[in-house]
Design a protein around this nucleic acid. Structure first.
Lengths: 211, 211
DNA sequence: ACTCGTTTCAAACAAGTGTTTAAATAAAAC
DNA sequence: GTTTTATTTAAACACTTGTTTGAAACGAGT
């Protein structure tokens, strides 16, 4: 076994660099340097740079998706038990809250969230699919659950608004340091709870907007 | 002058490739090949690859921003003339509608919109600022106008919700071909007008959500 | 002590990058 | 028609990229 933590050091470094500099702007040389590993070690442990990206995403997205799905299922189960419709707000919260909570849990997690926030609009198809393949199932679950919650909303409108919500979320997930407003007199120092609160209110209002 | 359209051919090709493959994934060799120009011509006409990006963005963003600003000012002027508050919906529409209309006007325009839609979350600071420096003024204008329209909304909440709106817009601007929902039974063939309509309703509801 | 499978390492590989150069060509000015 | 200027071209430059290689070092198992 030896010190298998070379693998984790590489994963951690890759997470940070892929998030902050982008996948294609990260060279294996500066990565292995940051991770205090030999250049060849990423090919030895992961096979290729792309497989490394896949590993970086899988390591954290699979557990996160599990949590989100559990929470959604819990909302659905409770509603069914009480013979009422599941609440759209509860469902959205079950999806959003764990995401932002995870983002707030550690610097590496923040990097990771920023990485997958950007991957929705990643131009490179291989890179984008690396994320989409893992994210697609949970999005299907969320869609079906929200369709139960809002049966009067036509599916094509629901899916459109869900797209809008994904856009809003991605943006929040990405914007670590920089802001669209370059030099405003107003900073936006939103703490974690306020941000979740505001995001929830925004997307819920949008989702339930008059047709 | 000669046929200065070498410059435009390069601009057109760069627009397409930067949007579809990304700035860093576009090599000057395939670009000049597509544009039927010599490899050295981009350095001759633009100085560097980065200056070319700047030129690509400036060519279309400056006129677009002018239109958006004019429309916003018109809404403000009309409101002042009638001694009423400007409507948030009118202001948002003045910003959003020209953007999506432009996106719909030609294939090149669609590429361009997708390019700047992604540049908000671009990891490379130089590339990101290339867009932000040109976009920042119009965002300030929009912010101040919306602050007039919704004086009861605390500025820090307004700016947060504006950030959300920018996220939603960026996502719509990017999503040319691909969707977050990989294999849904439901396609989203939204025509231009429906998309504008749905987007307007979504962001307006979010902006005016209860505090 | 010796072997075997795993991991590390420095070096080289082949291919691709943006940029520069200097000669050739075209256009314009006088 | 000649002289400047502007543009195009092929070739080279210096450098970085991801990946491969083969030998060295390590860590149990017997």
């Amino acid at each position: 076994m030896a010190q298998c933590d070379t693998k984790t050091r590489i994963l951690d470094g890759a997470e940070q660099l892929f998030a902050r500099e982008g996948f294609h702007n990260t060279s294996l040389r500066v990565l292995t340097n940051l991770a205090e590993a030999n250049l060849a070690s990423v090919n030895y442990h992961f096979g290729s740079k792309e497989s490394l990206l896949q590993a970086v995403i899988e390591r954290r997205l699979l557990p996160l998706n599990k949590i989100r799905e559990e929470k959604i299922r819990k909302v659905l189960a409770l509603a069914e038990k009480n013979s009422i419709l599941p609440g759209a707000e509860d469902l959205l919260r079950a999806f959003i809250e764990p995401t932002l909570e995870f983002r707030n849990s550690s610097p590496g997690a923040r990097d990771f969230i920023s990485l997958i926030g950007r991957s929705l609009s990643e131009p490179d198809e291989t890179v984008r699919n690396c994320f989409l393949d893992l994210a697609s199932p949970i999005l299907q679950v969320l869609f079906k659950a929200l369709h139960q919650a809002l049966p009067q909303l036509p599916p094509e409108i629901l899916i459109t608004r869900l797209q809008f919500i994904m856009g809003t979320m991605s943006h929040v997930m990405c914007m670590g340091n920089h802001s669209a407003f370059n030099n405003p007199e107003l900073p936006l120092p939103l703490d974690h709870n306020t941000l979740v609160d505001q995001l929830m209110k925004f997307v819920l209002a949008g989702l339930e907007a008059p047709k």
